[in-house]
Design a protein around this nucleic acid. Structure first.
Lengths: 337, 337
DNA sequence: CTGTTAGCGCTTTCAC
DNA sequence: GTGAAAGCGCTAACAG
């Protein structure tokens, strides 16, 4: 390993003190043009690159952030990460990406390791920690923005999706299309976003003077397989069902497949809606009516908020709620029908 | 900002020297059980967390890695990142994730910033830099593993996919199914992996005694839209085409759509194949025959290789080639047909 | 404009 | 077993 070239090497090479070199690399103006050039030449000659570590220790700033997600390979989160990283790059920050793999222990562990790494800020998506543990784990972090999760008492900023609104838009659309026998493939029972979506579903049902039918709300894994299974069961038990609202697009694709396998015509016999609008949604047959969640934008907003906190512009916590948008495709009949 | 608690605070609290605290947090055995417990109590009391920055400066180890991809929101790369991060986590490393957004300038810039951050290793996917720039940019990095990219002269390890084999498997499958009029939607002309795939295509064509027909090799954007456009053009110009081999699954989905729009039956009139086997491939109509690239595995292998280099177990560079696997679905006729 | 002196919070080395 | 001293590579604060 060729020993790293340090500021002292550059200083010697240029015949100045290391302080002058420091000034040059930091763009301080208090350096004469002549020496600046000499130092710069030495830097180039030696291929010197300042040590971020030493710098961070001296300045107490790391220009480093942590982003924690359950699983980057999930397009929902990878889009968020992209948005965060894009803004972070522009602000000259590097981001540590950590996957929790849905494991609370691991989530705590990465939160601790990010603390040791001295991240200046943290963006935490869909935390699986309970309020108490989460609060504790964030206590030592200088700045945090939560995505898709709120913390009640303590003052932590968050960027949220208005899932309740989304569910309502979807139900209204379905009801306007003449459907009366809705069912809800509700996703994992522990999920916070499920609660929001389910609440929107119930409220919209009530607003449309339709009876709540708890039996037609069915938990399922948030996957194609989960959707298939739940849809098959529901359609068999309640053949009169004419619309399946799904937790997310993957579940909806499963529902699509199950309905087709049972000989139901789509959307004439059964309408299906998804949620999120991942790339897949537009590409299945029939294309999915869904509710678009602007994931990249979520990441961007979260990062901008974090940026403000880091810079103390707005030390007071903020709650940003982002409205999702109805996207009508062929898996639901048009209202005219 | 509540001042960070340092090793000195813990030492004072426990009534020992900071050296003893250091020993405790590093699990050194040369500490009596009694003082160890007293120190541990102080650590817990104060919620002390050692500064990774200070540690890194003293030890010259950061336990930090860099992963550079064109775009995390592309499932191809997010799966790789997941594999890398999984192994890195187990090895107690944190990873900086950087997107180049396909911009060589930005790629250079993140490579430099990772250098300043003192990453101990680097995994670089599908670099868009030319050999010279790439070589230069890696020169100061202590350990690097390339994915989907080779560097000729200098000794840099790489994990590669045998795209040529994959293309050959696909062509053989198509030819066995009785198709003779193949065309190739070849993807972006600058891409290295396109070169490999195209070479496999040509060789397999020759092996099957089919004439090379350069006009039926068409560049296209690596997206659904790109595939639609190219397929529409090819099928219009050469109505006799009975099989479309596509650069990747997205292009294939576009081809599927274009063929259907032109009234072609799938796969009876036109067979279509993809590449990669992203989730989408199994879910479109008809499901895509494709070639599975084990992306998570790519990430895992790359990280294991990097790990070896970091630990000097194997300082000599290695080239790992991973074979893709034919996945037959309904977008191609069965060989019996 | 430039250099000197102190740290940043930890580990390494060597005494005791 | 424990501690004192020095230093990792840089910047802050002051001197000249």
């Amino acid at each position: 390993m060729p020993k790293r070239v340090t500021i002292a090497d550059v200083a010697a090479h240029a015949g100045v003190s290391h302080m002058t070199v420091s000034r040059v690399i930091n763009g301080a103006n208090a350096v004469s043009e002549g020496t600046r050039q000499r130092v710069q030449a030495a830097i180039d000659d030696l291929g010197y690159r300042p040590s971020g570590i030493a710098r961070s220790l001296a300045t107490q700033r790391t220009r480093t952030l942590g982003v924690v997600v359950p699983d980057v390979s999930n397009p929902f989160f990878s889009d968020i990460v992209l948005g965060v990283e894009h803004v972070a790059y522009a602000a000259n920050y590097n981001v540590f990406l950590c996957n929790t793999e849905e494991d609370p222990e691991r989530e705590l562990s990465v939160l601790h390791s990010l603390e040791e790494k001295q991240v200046e800020g943290l963006i935490l998506c869909s935390s699986r920690l309970d309020d108490k543990d989460l609060d504790l784990a964030l206590r030592n972090h200088p700045a945090t923005v939560l995505i898709n999760r709120r913390l009640p008492q303590p003052d932590v900023s968050a960027v949220l999706v208005d899932y309740e609104l989304g569910a309502r838009l979807l139900v209204e659309h379905i009801v306007q299309a003449g459907r009366r026998n809705l069912a809800f493939l509700a996703g994992p029972s522990a999920s916070q976003s499920r609660v929001w979506r389910e609440s929107g579903y119930s409220k919209a049902l009530a607003a449309a003077d339709l009876p709540p039918r708890p039996a037609r709300v069915r938990s399922c894994a948030p996957s194609v397989a989960g959707g298939q299974e739940a849809a098959r069961a529901l359609l068999s038990e309640y053949p009169e069902i004419d619309a399946l609202l799904c937790y997310n697009d993957l579940v909806a694709v499963g529902a699509l497949q199950a309905a087709a396998a049972l000989g139901r015509r789509l959307p004439d016999d059964v309408a299906v809606t998804g949620f999120d609008d991942i790339a897949l949604a537009a590409l299945v047959t029939p294309p999915l009516t869904t509710c678009r969640v602007p994931r990249y934008e979520l990441g961007v907003q979260a990062m901008k908020l974090l940026w403000q906190h880091i810079n103390g512009d707005s030390s007071s916590p903020a709650l940003i709620t982002i409205p999702p948008e109805l996207v009508i495709r062929a898996s639901t009949p048009s209202p005219a029908t």
